[in-house]
Every structure is written in structure tokens, then in C-alpha cells.
Design a protein around this nucleic acid. Structure first.
Length: 279
DNA sequence: ATGACATGATAAA
DNA sequence: TTATCCTGTCATA
């Protein structure tokens, strides 16, 4: 699940559940135990995300920086009668006891990062991140200035968190397909209008992701009636559909390893770009 | 029981 | 480019 929309939802949910309250902080798995002891019984002020990074801010400006990585998860459960004993490897557990048998707790597992940070450390990290389409102050031109100067394939640039932050393998593949862009096109070959269109679409797609909690990129008009009734068909045009027919043209979806990640695309909808210099 | 794989990122070679 | 870390789930045996 963890692309930018997941972290954005998490920040909101954690803020609603814990902001302004004293919490019990523990690390049942042990790897965050020392810091957990330091934070236990203190007050959470708020939570915030930028791209795939999440910060939970405690009083006195102590931040817990979380990055879920490929398979981390942060499960929040509200209105629980009794907080259950931890299951599996719980790195961090936050608990707010309402009393009257109604409690809230959140369990973090499998995260790449779960560490105490100062505001300065957070600043330094954010300085390395590109604009996050989910943040209202995001400046798409900052991303564009990187893209237009880079000969790297656009599919790689979209995944580079210092260019744009929050895009993962799903949004990358789907965005390129929706805009009929060859994933291997160098950044230098894109025109500004194309980027503007992609950015605006990304803002809207990711906002949908925040609203619904899932990434669903297929437009209704690209589905048959049967598919319309089948929720699974709504999910993606090309992501994880290698060998299956493209929902737009029927060509078999292709997959190739690009910088260690599976890249999915349709060779007909996203035909190979040829630069004028080569013609 | 075992292994492959995953919506990520980093450090080393 | 390759190896490595973190954890859970699903398919295969």
C-alpha cells in the first residue's frame, strides 16, 4: 500500500486519534525500545507527511520519523474494547486509553525507518524531497526543472523522490499509461504542457487515493459493463498486468526491470519515442 | 515447511 | 548493477 496517499491518510488518522493526548509508547519487538521509553506518557502534538515520509510530533519537538518502505504498515484501530497483545513484530505501538472500554491504538510493523528526529533533521530530509502532489503548497515547476534537464528515462525520474515525492511503482506506471507516454523517453524530450497535464492528473489521482485508501486509476469509459461490475477491473491499466490485454487497445501488457523495479507499460498505447535527431 | 514476491531505499562494488 | 534490510502473504510442495 505505501505510496504517498497512504502516508497522507496515516498522518490525518494519527492526528485525529492522538493529537493533544497523552499516549503510551512501546516497542514490543524491541528495536525502538529506548526511544519508546523516552516518549512514553508524553503528548502527541500532530502528525504530518511529505511524500512517503511520516512524522509524529511529540511535545518538546521530538519527532518520530517513519518510512514504511516496501512492506511496512501502520495499523490504527479506534473504538477498541480491550487493546490486544501485539501480534507479530510490532516495532512501535501507540495507545490512548479513553477509559470506559473505548481505546485507540496503532501498530507499526516492517518499517524501513522508525527513528527519533529533531526538527533540524526533518528539515534536512525534506530539503532532499521533490514536491509532493498532495501538499497544497507543492510547486510542480521544481519537478519540471529537474525533468527537463535530465536525459534519464521519465519512468525513472517519476520514481526519484528528489524529483517528485510520493509516487511509487503503481502511480508511475498508471500515470505514464494515462498520458500515453513512452516510459523510456528521456526527461529532456518532454514538453512543458505534457508535464503540466501529468501533474494535474497526479494531483487528482492521489487525492482520490487519499479519499478512498486505494489506488484506482481506470476511467469508467475504458471498461465494459461486466468489468464495471467487477471492482478488480477498476484497479489498473497496466500495473501488475503483464501479459494481460491492455484495457484500452488489447495489446499484451509488457513488463521489464528498470533499476531493480518492475516497469509495466503498453507498447501500443505508449509507443517508442523517436527523437528528431535520430530520424 | 519452504520459497517467491511486494506499492522502497540505501550502500557498496 | 548487486546486495541488503525490514515483515507478511500467497503459492507450491
Amino acid at each position: 500500500m505505501p505510496e504517498g496517499h497512504t502516508l497522507h491518510r496515516l498522518a490525518t488518522a494519527l492526528g485525529q486519534a492522538f493529537a493533544g493526548h497523552q499516549v503510551r509508547v512501546s516497542s514490543p519487538q524491541g528495536r525502538f525500545a529506548e526511544s519508546a521509553a523516552l516518549l512514553d506518557r508524553r503528548t502527541i502534538e500532530d502528525a504530518e507527511s511529505w511524500g512517503k515520509h511520516l512524522w509524529v510530533r511529540f511535545d518538546a519537538d521530538d519527532l518520530v520519523h517513519v518510512h514504511l518502505g516496501l512492506y511496512g504498515r501502520f495499523d490504527l484501530l479506534d473504538g477498541v474494547e480491550v487493546v490486544p497483545p501485539p501480534v507479530g513484530q510490532v516495532r512501535l505501538r501507540l495507545v490512548r486509553a479513553h477509559g470506559a472500554g473505548s481505546n485507540v491504538y496503532a501498530d507499526l510493523r516492517g518499517a524501513t525507518a522508525c527513528e527519533l528526529q529533531t526538527p533540524e533533521q526533518r528539515e534536512a530530509l525534506v530539503a532532499r524531497l521533490g514536491p509532493d502532489p498532495l501538499r497544497p503548497d507543492a510547486d510542480p515547476d521544481r519537478a519540471w526543472q529537474r525533468i527537463r534537464r535530465s536525459r534519464a528515462p521519465i519512468a525513472g525520474l517519476l520514481m526519484d523522490q528528489s524529483v517528485v515525492s510520493g509516487i511509487g511503482n503503481v502511480y508511475r506506471a498508471e500515470l505514464l499509461h494515462r498520458h500515453r507516454v513512452d516510459p523510456f523517453r528521456p526527461g529532456t524530450s518532454l514538453r512543458p504542457g505534457r508535464w503540466t497535464g501529468m501533474w494535474e492528473d497526479l494531483v487528482s489521482l492521489m487525492a482520490d487515493g487519499v479519499r478512498t485508501g486505494v489506488i484506482r486509476t481506470v476511467r469508467a469509459e475504458d471498461l465494459t459493463e461486466a468489468e464495471w461490475r467487477d471492482a478488480a477491473a477498476w484497479v489498473s491499466y497496466v500495473y501488475r498486468r503483464a501479459g494481460e490485454p491492455c484495457r484500452v487497445c488489447g495489446t499484451r501488457v509488457r513488463v521489464r526491470d528498470l533499476q531493480g523495479r518492475n516497469l509495466y507499460w503498453c507498447s501500443r498505447c505508449q509507443p517508442r519515442f523517436r527523437s528528431r535527431a535520430l530520424q
